[in-house]
């Protein structure tokens, strides 16, 4: 077969195109693998979760919020437009709109519920992130890579729990006392609760859990049948926020 210059260029061009397409194919095939391995029924050795016992939560107490926001350099921006929060309180009716009715008893009506990122089993924020800046770790923590976040805020639209905050402005002037061991954030990135992954790495429990004097917050591995969280889940009736959305929230509430 005789190949003229034109033909050679055509073949060469196709070759180059193939090389360019290869990484895309790799990514697509990898994505399929990842999907397959996270299917239900696969044995997971660790799944971190939290139980919030609202019965033990004392009204007016903000110890967990102060501890979390202090450790993680969360700015205290007072206006609701720009505010950033990782853990906060909301009235029971707003936190559990599906459970709302006229005769809510047990002192729950209007009483504050502690809210934070649900570290969902099937997180919609992770699904929509165009850069994998937010991702789910093998132990279930839904993490943010602040280095990679482009600030498109797709995750904020996707989160049905309002757990995500955006840095509308430089947060540093609003941090009263900076914890030098943990970075602050920069303007233009999204942030949220990280289940204290940096403390877990040192063998510590989350700051909010540690700070709660009333044992309203319990943290642990729900895959371990002997763990404290499993014991509490066994002996108490618990509910989750908006379970009908299929996100599989991992914060359980005792009301």
């Amino acid at each position: 077969m005789k190949i003229d210059r034109r033909g050679f260029l055509k073949i060469g061009g196709l070759g180059i195109l193939g090389v360019a397409v290869k990484p895309v194919i790799d990514v697509v095939s990898k994505a399929k693998l990842a999907e397959a391995s996270s299917k239900k029924g696969v044995l997971v050795e660790k799944r971190l979760a939290m139980v919030v016992n609202l019965k033990n939560c004392k009204e007016g107490c903000t110890d967990c919020i102060a501890a979390c926001h202090g450790v993680h350099n969360v700015p205290d921006i007072a206006n609701p437009k720009d505010e950033v929060k990782w853990i906060w309180t909301e009235s029971y009716e707003n936190a559990f709109p599906d459970q709302e009715h006229r005769f809510i008893g047990g002192g729950m009506k209007g009483s504050p519920a502690i809210l934070l990122c649900n570290h969902c089993d099937n997180p919609s924020c992770v699904r929509v992130c165009p850069t994998k800046a937010t991702f789910k770790r093998e132990d279930g923590i839904v993490m943010m890579d602040y280095h990679r976040c482009i600030g498109c805020r797709f995750c904020m639209a996707a989160c049905p729990y309002g757990s995500r905050s955006f840095n509308w402005r430089d947060p540093r002037p609003f941090i009263k006392k900076v914890n030098p061991e943990f970075p602050t954030r920069t303007k233009g990135v999204v942030e949220k609760c990280n289940f204290c992954e940096e403390r877990l790495a040192k063998g510590l429990i989350p700051a909010c859990v540690e700070s709660c004097k009333n044992k309203a917050l319990v943290f642990g591995n729900v895959e371990d049948p002997n763990s404290e969280v499993r014991e509490i889940l066994r002996s108490n009736y618990t509910i989750r926020r908006k379970p009908g959305l299929g996100t599989g929230p991992q914060i359980y509430y005792i009301v």
Partner: peptide, 11 residues
């Protein structure tokens, strides 16, 4: 480098 926008320089 943008490191210092987030990472804290020891006081």
């Amino acid at each position: 480098p943008t490191c210092w926008n987030c990472h804290v320089v020891p006081e």
